[in-house]
């Protein structure tokens, strides 16, 4: 009897755990469905291509003009640009930590990387706007120094720690035999790293980069404080722009629920989240192929 009771208790506990785990993980899908529902009128009235490729954003006009091409382009410039700056430094630092750093220095650098991820994006944005933008204004004699480039620069600092942590892990996964063979053949440490270790770890390192790209696309505060927030289609990296995340954060508070402005912001949110999810699925496919040794 006692044994029976215990068994029942175990059953109850395990089913509670299973249901909580399932329900809370399904929250992700609930979020997506909810955002899709709130934005539905936009998709049915304006259409996918009209919304994605329309370059004029005047949601309060009658009839409203709702197209987010400028924001999509801004998001791509900012995130892509951040990666362009962060990749060489992040990879360099990862290689340094994995292969070249003296032990005591590496022991200092690892927690430092951790702490850099702990600094919130609003502080990066604030410092970028207060120091970097000011510097651009003085140095290049600009009326205002905000630009997609400034946002990329600060964003790069924010994603470097993620690139470093993930690519260092990838480098460390390379089997030690390769290292030993390289050293036995008498090649230089640099040659060994660049020609043997990096190619072997390249998928993991690419994964790190893709992950950083996803983060950069979704980043809000720093971008909002640095990109300049104009609704025109940016022509270059040095123009101002307003990425999707900044658009949502800035305008959501001033909308009326169920108005087309409100719906349009949810549609923009859906586009952003689908872009990030596409990147994440991409990286998972990549990592699966890596695990299978492909």
């Amino acid at each position: 009897m006692i044994y029976r009771g215990l068994e029942l208790k175990e059953k109850i506990i395990s089913s509670i755990i299973i249901s909580v785990a399932t329900v809370s993980s399904l929250l992700l899908l609930a979020m997506l469905i909810f955002i899709l529902r709130e934005s539905w009128p936009i998709w049915s009235q304006i259409g996918v291509s009209g919304f994605l490729f329309g370059s004029s954003w005047r949601p309060l006009n009658t009839p409203p003009e709702i197209g987010i091409l400028s924001m999509i382009v801004s998001t791509m410039w900012v995130a892509g640009g951040a990666l362009l700056i962060a990749a060489p430094l992040g990879f360099g630092c990862a290689i340094f930590l994995a292969e070249f750093a003296p032990r005591p220095l590496a022991a200092i650098l690892r927690p430092v990387i951790n702490m850099l991820t702990g600094i919130p994006s609003v502080v990066y944005g604030f410092l970028g706007a207060a120091v970097l933008v000011k510097f651009f204004e003085v140095k290049f004699d600009l009326a205002s120094g905000e630009s997609l480039f400034a946002a990329s620069l600060i964003l790069a600092i924010m994603v470097i720690p993620f690139i470093v942590a993930n690519s260092e892990a990838a480098l460390r996964l390379v089997a030690p035999e390769y290292r030993h063979a390289g050293i036995a053949l008498g090649v230089s440490r640099q040659y060994l790293t660049l020609r043997i270790l990096v190619p072997l770890a390249r998928k993991g390192m690419l994964g790190a980069l893709v992950l950083a790209f996803g983060r950069a696309m979704g980043e809000t505060m720093a971008v909002l404080m640095l990109a300049g927030n104009t609704l025109r289609l940016p022509g270059s990296w040095f123009d101002k722009g307003e990425p999707l995340s900044a658009l949502i954060a800035l305008e959501l508070g001033s909308t009326t629920p169920a108005g087309s402005h409100y719906q349009a912001l949810f549609a923009a949110g859906l586009v952003l989240v689908l872009m990030v999810i596409a990147v994440n699925i991409g990286i998972n496919l990549l990592l699966n192929r890596l695990q299978k040794g492909g």
């Binding site: 983060r215 995340s245 949110g269 990147v279």
Partner: peptide, 17 residues
């Protein structure tokens, strides 16, 4: 997989939801 994808969702999207 769901938890991992949730970690990648931008925080502004959670705010929106």
């Amino acid at each position: 997989l769901l938890v991992q994808s949730m970690a990648g969702i931008p925080s502004i999207i959670i705010g929106l939801f």
